[in-house]
Design a protein around this nucleic acid. Structure first.
Lengths: 198, 198
DNA sequence: ATGGTGATTGCACAAACTGTCATCAGGAGG
DNA sequence: CCTCCTGATGACAGTTTGTGCAATCACCAT
């Protein structure tokens, strides 16, 4: 028999997501969240360094997942391909949590404070990825570039994945985004539709 | 004869940069900054929505500068080239403020709270750029991708620019970063000697 | 002089954190 | 069975951030 109700972090996270969804982020106090989880404000701050972090618990695990996947990529892979392969490896992870991921994404998109935190988290993943790439012999600048480009592709792909009414996989959307890249950076494109004058 | 000392925003910014540099961000209270600028805490919050914003005054102007430059890019330019040309257009802007920009960059790099803010600002620029690209007929996904890729290149280039002991121009570093891109993404049918300069 | 304007300020207050110390059930070891 | 240790929890006081509201005060147009 546990001395306290188990999984305090999980309960706090759940309470926070519910309250943020119901009344919005700034209309919810840390006290509200704690109470709903059957805990106190002080205990909330024992588990999370600040109010935003409640939606980012376990992000280190995610980082580790990615980093390991990059390490596992064949040494022959070009930097960007290694990074994208790593992101594709998260497909199963997300597939099992689609409703959760969607709600969380909606919350974060709706609240600038949360978006800020999301961005640093992504940058921190990118930084970790870049470091692994460097260990694989990629120059510092190229490593940054590859990891950030990967981030951008993930962002675009993930956005599509969240909105996709057909529930296609993350891998599908990542590859679609990757293909877009060629339209952006690649050889001259003959697309001149939409002549919005001035 | 002005009724108050002029340029409150400038004085607050200067005071904040000095104090953040001296004692660090979190060791500096808003009251400290205001006092040093000869004002009160309340007045600080009349000018800035929060403590972090003091280092980001005028960022809308910067956004506008970029957006206008993208609009001015030739319609034949590929998305990424249009974006990069726009960032290159900020060269003069930064060249005149190198010491300031370096100190500010060091501060932001050293303080996660400030980095968060920096990232949303960059994302907001990227979003504005993406919108312009869409108006130019680029698909939504490609526009996001091009603008974010541009951001990544700017980040890498700017970082090099700040560290460059030889004080080479931002344009120089942007182009160097751009060239790195090819090492990263690889070129399926590369070898085309096509000129990529805008 | 009269009243409007707009930057500034004082005051009160909610909410976000922080540091410190007390509590209290269970497990380890005697 | 008893005791000590541990670690999550909570009470409490204090600082800092940020907001709303009203008052001030010199300049300025009429």
């Amino acid at each position: 028999m546990a001395r306290w109700e188990p999984n305090a972090v999980g309960r706090l996270t759940e309470a926070a997501m519910a309250l943020f969804t119901e009344r919005g982020y700034s209309q919810t106090t840390v006290g509200d969240i704690a109470t709903r989880a059957g805990l106190t404000e002080r205990t909330f701050f024992n588990h999370f360094s600040d109010k935003r972090e409640v939606l980012f618990a376990g992000s280190e695990l995610f980082t580790q997942l990615i980093v390991d996947a990059v390490r596992a990529a064949p040494r022959s892979a070009k930097p960007l391909d290694a990074v994208l392969a790593a992101y594709e490896a998260t497909d199963a992870f997300f597939e099992g949590r689609r409703p959760f991921a969607r709600q969380r994404y909606a919350l974060i998109s709706a609240h600038p404070e949360l978006q800020e935190r999301e961005l640093v988290k992504m940058l921190s993943v990118a930084a970790a990825v870049a470091e692994v790439l460097e260990q694989r012999g990629v120059s510092k600048a190229a490593a940054s570039l590859a990891s950030e480009l990967g981030s951008a592709i993930l962002r675009v792909g993930f956005d599509q994945w969240c909105k996709d009414k057909k529930d296609r996989s993350l891998v599908f959307h990542l590859r679609a985004a990757r293909r877009q890249l060629e339209a952006v950076v690649g050889r001259p494109q003959a697309r001149s539709r939409a002549r919005t004058t001035a």
